[in-house]
């Protein structure tokens, strides 16, 4: 059974520490080249490899990541 996931980042609260990037098993997160209101390069999803494992969200110190996960038919 394959899963497909999506992460939603609260970009204004993200501090761009990139701990989520280091913990993503599929390399689906990177820091954006854009900055938020505080000047941090926030995290964003890249590509369609996300499997919704929630690793990024559980290690996020600022709890800015919401994870969606659905079965692929």
């Amino acid at each position: 059974m394959a899963f497909k996931g999506i992460i939603e980042v609260d970009t204004q609260r993200c501090k761009g520490c990139s701990v989520c990037v280091a913990n993503c098993p599929t390399g689906s997160i990177r820091l954006s080249s854009k900055v938020n209101g505080k000047g941090y390069n926030y995290a964003e999803m890249v590509g369609d490899g996300c499997i919704g494992c929630s690793n990024c969200a559980i290690v996020c110190p600022d709890s800015v990541i919401t994870v969606y996960r659905a079965k692929v038919q």
């Binding site: 996931g5 969200a57 559980i58 994870v67 969606y68 996960r69 659905a70």
Partner: peptide, 14 residues
Amino acid sequence: IEDIKKPENIVYRK
């Protein structure tokens, strides 16, 4: 993306 991004598919949130 719209098919996945539904409240019932949330597996982790603040």
